[in-house]
């Protein structure tokens, strides 16, 4: 018995892809009908909606935090303004003239000028 050599050699493994491709097929035993599809789509929409709502609520919670901080800033600004007004009142000419330091001051007897 003799064997004739072919021009090209292909191993079985190389040939197997093409040769056995339709030999088996997976078929699921579970079949989804139109109701199941509808439910799944509804669930997906619900989940996405919940995610959106979570994010929107989180953004809104930041708004309340921002509002709180704004209120604090406004209050501190008001306090700062009050202190500035008080400072201006305390350093006003009348307040200075009536201070104990001013009352202790005397008129200079004479003035010398550096030339």
């Amino acid at each position: 018995m003799s064997y004739q050599r072919t021009q090209q050699f292909s191993s079985r493994r190389q040939q197997g892809w093409n040769r056995n491709q339709n030999t088996t097929r997976f078929v699921s035993a579970i079949k989804l009908g139109p109701v199941a599809h509808t439910v799944i789509v509804a669930l997906m929409i619900t989940v996405l909606g919940l995610i959106y709502l979570t994010q929107a609520t989180r953004a809104t919670s930041y708004d309340y935090q921002a509002k709180e901080i704004d209120s604090q800033i406004a209050e501190l600004t008001t306090k700062k303004g009050d202190l500035e007004v008080e400072n201006a009142r305390l350093t006003a000419l009348e307040a200075v003239q009536n201070s104990s330091v001013a009352r202790e001051m005397t008129q200079p007897a004479s003035t010398e000028y550096a030339r």
């Binding site: 929107a56 953004a59 809104t60 708004d63 309340y64 509002k67």
Partner: peptide, 10 residues
Amino acid sequence: TDVSNVPLTI
């Protein structure tokens, strides 16, 4: 704004 007139970013 919400019912308390807090400005919201939405």
